[in-house]
Amino acid sequence: MNMTDMNSAAAATPSGRRQGEVILDLQNISLRFGGVKALTDISFNIREHEIRSIIGPNGAGKSSMLNVINGVYHPQEGRILYRGEERRRLEPYMAARQGIARTFQNIALFKGMSVLDNIMTGRNLKMKSNIFQQALYWGAAQQEEIAHREKVEEVIDFLEIQNVRKTPVGQLPYGLQKRVELGRALAAEPSLLLLDEPMAGMNVEEKQDMCRFILDVNDQFGTTIVLIEHDMGVVMDISDRVVVLDYGKKIGDGAPDEVRNNEDVISAYLGTSH
């Protein structure tokens, strides 16, 4: 499959969403840990407003891919263009500044803090008062705190977690923790949202809720979403385009239907080619 095919395939999406320009372009990315190759020569792009899924068997390099996108890992080879500009040696907090937020496969909440405080940390980048103003908690600092609290309450309403807002996150059930983690990412009002298995370990109802949130975020705020997910039903339902990884290599890319019928993909999942 070549690049032009892929792009034209993207024009017609199942949901009929309007898709914008390419926002993130990954070119020939290779990542190694010592002698272990995590990613080999991977290229694909992400368009504005789309839901882009990354699928593949365990150990295919999906999480590594996300870690490359938001600067946790630095690939040895390849170029990354974000909004048309090539970036070099990006640290995670810089990626956050550029509007990239994410959730983790194993929940990475701040377990000693309440739901409210966890989501408030997502607003951190937008807070401007300095440490002295905050020590006095007076005037601008207090007003800022209240203004951001209002935004956070919107997120809390959106995710329907009002009743647990003061609960320490460590005490919440798994499904709610996943939701809070999504909330923390949303509070940053990202333009690109990376979701690493947001539905893993959930029951059907919780999955439906999460799907609804993802689609709503995409729909209401126009947020571009990169999704890693194992549930094929979900992936095929909500994605605009899907990229398939196996053993750190890209073996498929395109609209859900195309990918479903791709020989390499089928054999990777059924294990016939190895």
Partner: peptide
């Protein structure tokens, strides 16, 4: 790590 990822 999560702190850095949200911009701290």
């Amino acid at each position: 790590v999560a702190a850095a990822v949200i911009g701290i």
